[in-house]
Simulated scan of single mutants.
Amino acid sequence: MSNLSQSFMASIARTLNSAQVACVLWGHPLLNVHGVPSIIGSIDFVIPDDRLQTGIKALAQIKRLTPCLRGNLCPSHPQERYTPPPAFHMHVDASEVTIGLYLQSETLWFLPPLDDSLSSPQKLELPSYFVLASDQTVLPPWRPGRGSGVFKSGEYPVVVPRSFILLEAFLRLYARDSAKRIGSFGLPMIGYMEQYVDDDGFLDVTQLVEPLKTFYEELKEGKKPVRQWTTELKEALGIPEEEPEDYRTW
């Protein structure tokens, strides 16, 4: 769909950056960039918490985007999702396709704050944990049975987390939300990173911080029951154990 083209994603990043809102690609489009085959129903970006209102105003200037009028009937509403919801979203041409804004405190909180310098990525030497979506030296090319891979050169520069940072995010998100309904997505995402990124040689596990590196390798070995592994991961990260949500109440 043209709605979900790399050019359209880049245009959203340009709009946010023009309003001095630093943004980092997130969600299923980011999985595709890293070579994970994933159906894209939304284009998501992580932005600084204190720039949310500015980001909302910037998106409102895009003619193809319309406000969500469906309330809790919208598939992007928290009660309808099995994945963490965005802080704000709009619809593309009143369709099911959405543009979502996620807060850094809910997604990439373990990284330094996204600062204003990232709103001019074409002029910036990126931190070591980010890369441009068009960087062919780091990201995989398009391959059959994989995601879209690296952006074509010539597009407006879009910032993406490197693969080891994306894996770290999924490990931390799973540990944080494993007792919740929205935490159910975390373990499959870690598995996709192993199958499509690590196994294909596009993930440098040595760059993963401890204790996450050890826990990722333990999960790959499969020698521990997942419940035990999850409990030990939460303990290592200082996350208190919670009673699982009763999914029957949803």
Rank of each mutant, 00 (worst) to 15 (best):
P121S: 05
H89P: 01
P127M: 01
K123A: 15
V46S: 10
D93Y: 03
V46D: 01
S134C: 10
S120W: 14
T66A: 09
T83Q: 14
Q122M: 13
A94R: 13
H77A: 10
C74A: 04
R81S: 12
F130Y: 10
P86C: 04
P140D: 07
L59G: 07
V138C: 03
P86E: 03
P75C: 04
R64D: 11
D135H: 06
V92S: 12
K123F: 15
S117K: 13
P67Q: 06
Q122W: 13
Q61R: 14
L59C: 05
R64C: 10
Q53M: 14
W142L: 15
F110Q: 08
V92M: 11
S105K: 06
I99T: 09
Y82A: 10
I47F: 01
D115P: 08
P127H: 02
T107K: 00
L103P: 08
K123L: 14
F130E: 06
P48H: 06
E80L: 15
S76H: 11
M90V: 06
L114V: 00
P78T: 02
T66S: 11
V97N: 12
L132T: 07
W109T: 02
P78A: 05
F110V: 08
Y129V: 05
D44H: 07
Q53E: 15
V92T: 12
G55I: 02
R70K: 15
W109I: 00
D135I: 06
L73V: 07
S120D: 15
T54N: 14
D50A: 09
Y102V: 06
D116Q: 12
V46E: 04
R64G: 03
P75G: 00
L69I: 15
L101I: 02
N72C: 05
A133N: 01
Q53P: 12
Q79G: 12
F45S: 00
I56V: 15
G71S: 03
R64H: 13
T54Q: 13
P86L: 02
L52N: 09
A133Q: 02
A58S: 03
I99P: 03
T66Y: 10
P127D: 03
A60G: 07
S128N: 14
Q53T: 15
I56T: 12
D50N: 13
P113V: 05
E106T: 11
T98E: 13
P67N: 10
P144M: 08
E96R: 11
Q104G: 03
E106C: 10
P86V: 00
L69H: 14
P85A: 07
A58C: 04
I56P: 09
A60S: 11
T98I: 13
A133P: 03
L132Q: 03
H77D: 09
P78G: 06
W109S: 00
S119T: 02
P144V: 08
F130S: 07
I99H: 08
W142S: 15
D116M: 12
R70I: 13
P112D: 07
L103N: 00
P112C: 05
V92L: 11
Q53L: 15
I99G: 07
I43K: 09
S119D: 01
K57Q: 12
P141G: 08
P127E: 00
G55V: 04
Q79N: 05
D49R: 07
S128G: 14
P112I: 07
H91R: 01
E125Y: 13
L65I: 00
D93T: 09
Y82I: 14
P67D: 04
